Amino acid sequence: MINSILDNDFYKFTMQHAVIKLFPKARAKYRFINRGEHMFPPGFASALQEAIAELAKLQLTNREKDFFATTCPYIDPTYFDFLQGYRYDPTEVRIEQNGGELHIAIEGYWYRTILWEVPIMSLICELYYELTSQVRQGDDEVAEKARQKIMRYKQLGITIAEFGTRRRHSYTAHRLVVQALQAAGEGTFIGTSNVHMAMLNQTKPIGTHAHEWFMFHAAKYGFKMANLLGLEHWSDVYRGDLGIALSDTYTTDVFFTQFDKKLTKLFDGVRHDSGDPLEFADKAIAHYQQNGIDPRSKTIIFSDGLDVEKVTRIAEYCRGRIGISFGIGTNFTNDVGLPPMNIVIKMVEAYPEEAHWTPVIKLSDKPGKHTGDENMIALAKQILEIP
């Protein structure tokens, strides 16, 4: 199911590198959220625990280390030495099953636990389909679907990255999809969020940071400083590389008030991950224009639940107004003739150095995607003056 420590999203490694440099004593807690209310079969927790125990055997090989270091020269060499010595510790993960309900909690130093989210979600999906005896379409059909999609994207004259590790049907389906995209998508397919798949297909790992980066900053510095200091610290580590800023941890409107002129000029663009994409495009364009910047010199990465129809609508709306690119996840890696799972694992508490356990939250542009402690959500809305 997972046979490489690099079978994970790139932004987990880039954040881990930054956490080691800036917050090595911070601790974190994560929790599994079953948005789709899937019912898990008897014995699922035991099977998942066994699969997680197997992850402890993974280690970075010399070949993987050479690929990663050569591809990402902006990451310190010391980090790759650290990663070669890193081992997953299954004692950081607690799993319980009550009937069809699954409960997962992760706790430990943030620099260690940050790598758990993506592989655990991948394992949950693959085991769920296997243990519920759901059979996907054949290899040829899965690959052909991906090929047809990338050909349609090629006709739009846009660039596409694959972002589907977390909710993929299986490792095999994921590999088939990336191979098909790479083979048919020259000039359109620009890479994958999965570092292992990038190495296998000699393409580029794509990503920057995730919501948890800003959620931790809110716990340490407060909601009003979370976006600004999160991006300042990111630029301190990467010095202009990895320059796409995630915009919706505390709503887009709040983000743009904290995305000051320095950061607006420094970062290459922004990522859209919730809410209406066309409204977001208008807000981003207006923000750049207000700061005397040609929006066409910047890029929006759209990554929220995309399919061919949605991408087409966004591309036609934005063409000639601002740079655009797209990160497509589940519609690539779990379009196999079965209903995809709707699950997430989110940071729920953070323990900054010399502080205490603090609930962390996310206020996306889609209210149904708010996550975290209800009292803290109410407090954040009050502080940030969100209706």
Rank of each mutant, 00 (worst) to 15 (best):
L229M: 14
A284T: 05
I160K: 01
V177L: 05
Y79M: 04
G230A: 06
W116P: 08
R147C: 00
N342H: 13
G207T: 06
L55I: 09
T257H: 10
S235C: 14
L48S: 05
Q155H: 13
G292C: 04
R321L: 08
I328S: 02
I322H: 02
T208Q: 07
Y79E: 01
T251G: 00
F302T: 05
E96G: 08
I95S: 10
G157F: 06
Q137R: 14
A26Q: 14
S170N: 03
V178Y: 07
L338W: 00
L115D: 00
I33E: 06
K12E: 03
T257A: 09
P359G: 04
S325D: 04
R166W: 08
F23L: 09
Y288K: 08
T358N: 11
R271V: 12
A180F: 01
V135A: 11
M121T: 02
E101D: 14
L384I: 02
L278M: 03
R112Q: 14
R167Y: 04
D373F: 05
V177T: 03
R167Q: 06
L48D: 02
I190E: 03
K57P: 10
Q182L: 03
P77S: 14
I383R: 07
T264G: 09
P119S: 02
Y317S: 12
R271G: 11
R319Q: 13
V195S: 08
P339R: 13
M225K: 15
G327E: 01
V135N: 13
G275F: 04
F223A: 05
E232V: 08
M1R: 14
I150N: 03
M197C: 14
W213L: 00
F82Y: 15
M199Y: 01
K220M: 04
Q97S: 03
D66P: 08
A355D: 06
Y153N: 02
L123Y: 00
K220L: 09
E354G: 14
V118W: 02
Q290N: 15
H211C: 08
V195R: 07
E54F: 10
G108R: 10
L176T: 00
Y128W: 03
E144I: 00
E353D: 13
F256E: 01
L48F: 11
K261C: 12
D307S: 12
V178A: 10
D273V: 12
R63Y: 13
A18C: 13
S46P: 09
D335F: 08
G368V: 07
Q49M: 12
T299Y: 15
Q84Y: 09
H196L: 09
P340T: 05
R112H: 15
N375F: 07
K204W: 14
G43L: 08
V178P: 06
D7R: 07
V118Y: 12
E186M: 08
Q182A: 14
L200Q: 07
T14F: 05
I285C: 10
I5A: 08
I386S: 00
K204C: 10
A26N: 15
D9H: 07
Q258H: 13
I377M: 13
I33L: 13
A198I: 09
S235G: 07
D294I: 01
A18E: 08
D248E: 08
V336Y: 00
S170H: 02
F82G: 03
A184L: 03
G305T: 06
I104R: 08
A286V: 09
K25C: 13
